[in-house]
Write a protein that binds this DNA or RNA. Structure first.
Length: 112
DNA sequence: TGGGTGACCATAG
DNA sequence: ACTATGGCCACCC
């Protein structure tokens, strides 16, 4: 009960650090947090992000291929794409164009 | 106790 | 580009 809440909190914290106009992957966050827990849990955390008081830019988290696999978990399926486009990230066929150009790796950017 | 399910990932073919 | 596996671990029967 309490254990996973800590994990969730850490995930939310990292996601909040993602700059506007950038994006990262579930696996990158899991790895940054120690990889003791799988990237599936990051997705699980995103599932709970809607009930957070603080704003969590979940739309900046995609899978390793830059695909918007979480779009169906937003209020409407097109919100995620809209938010990304609004930040200057182009999306085509539910996939970020030039993902590596926008990729934000917490391991490197947060330099730990 | 155990099986099924994920907003995943790496690897192999 | 695709499928198939195995690993991952919290959650829900």
């Amino acid at each position: 009960m309490q254990k996973h809440e800590d994990f969730f909190h850490n995930v939310f914290e990292v996601v909040r650090l993602i700059p506007k106009g950038r994006a990262t992957s579930y696996g990158a966050i899991a790895k940054y947090l120690g990889s003791a827990r799988s990237s599936r849990m990051v997705g699980w955390a995103m599932n709970a992000s809607h009930s957070q008081k603080q704003y969590v830019p979940a739309h900046r988290v995609v899978n390793r291929n830059g695909e918007l696999t979480g779009k169906n978990h937003f209020p409407t399926p097109f919100i995620m794409e809209e938010l990304l486009e609004k930040e200057g990230i182009k999306v085509l066929n539910d996939k970020i164009v030039n993902f590596n150009k926008f990729y934000w790796d917490p391991m490197k950017e947060l330099e730990l």
